[in-house]
Every structure is written in C-alpha cells, then in structure tokens.
C-alpha cells in the first residue's frame, strides 16, 4: 500500500514536470518509469498511475478554467457535445480519463517489464 502512494506521488510530480517541457504523452513515460522501479502488482501500478494523472489533469484544468469562470469550457463542452452532452463536468471527466488511461497503460507496461526482468 505504501508503494501505491509512493508511485502515485512520484508519477504526479514527474508527469507534471515532463509536461512543462515535453509533449503531453510523456505522461506515459513517467508512469512507465515509476512502475518499473517501484515494486507493486500490475493492477496497483495501473491504478496509481491512472489516479495520479487523472487528478493532475482535472485539478490543473479546474484551476485554469475556474479563473475563466468556465467561459471557454462551456463552449468546448458545446462543441464536443456528442461526447459531453453539453456538460462541463463531463468535459472534466473525459479530460481526466484520457490522461489516466494513457498513464495507466504506461504504468501497466512498466510493471510488466519489471516482472519480466525478475
């Protein structure tokens, strides 16, 4: 359990730093590396990375958008209404889901690679 928290924290921090300079998909690299070095089962690796980037993206998006009083998020929710059903909340969820899935899969790959090594 301790390792789950550890990997959650490290994934969040490294994904955040990497994205300041590199493309968005480097979250998968961060998750991969953390899962490779921090020992945990595959499911826990996936979950901790998923939760880490899900929260990172949703919280950061929320910070940006609330200062904007959701003017833009409302319009994007409308623009993508086939996905969001015109709901800003759904837009947040989709945003988090995309970040979570990519990093989760990166972590799963990392943990499987670590097992291979053993």
């Amino acid at each position: 359990m301790k390792n789950v928290f550890l990997s959650l924290l490290v994934t969040t921090a490294s994904a955040c730093v990497l994205q300041l300079f590199l493309p968005w998909w480097t979250i998968a690299l961060a998750a991969f590396a953390v899962a490779y070095f921090v020992k945990q089962n595959s499911f826990a690796a996936f979950l901790s990375a998923f939760v880490a980037v899900f929260l990172l993206w949703v919280v950061y998006a929320y910070m940006l958008s609330s200062a904007n009083e959701n003017i833009l998020a409302t319009k994007i929710a409308e623009l993508l209404k086939q996905l969001t059903k015109d709901s800003v909340t759904t837009l947040y969820l989709i945003t988090g889901l995309i970040g979570g899935l990519v990093s989760g899969l990166g972590a799963l790959t990392g943990s499987l690679a670590a097992k291979r090594k053993q």
Binding site: Q19, P23, W24, N70, L72, A73, I98
Partner: peptide
C-alpha cells in the same frame, strides 16, 4: 489521441491542460 481524426480534434493534444485548450481559458480578472 495525438492524431486529428476527421472533424474531431486530436483529443490528447486538445484536452490536456498543459498545452491543450484549457490553456486558452484566460483569467478573466488577470
């Protein structure tokens, strides 16, 4: 998620808050 598909944007690029559209949500009192 990094490719533009038809009319839809490249979702990963577009929705991530670090470089995507959320960055255009300017602070209305800033």
């Amino acid at each position: 998620l990094n490719s533009k598909m038809g009319l839809a944007p490249a979702f990963g690029k577009f929705l991530n808050p670090f470089t995507g559209f959320w960055q255009n949500a300017e602070n209305i009192n800033g």
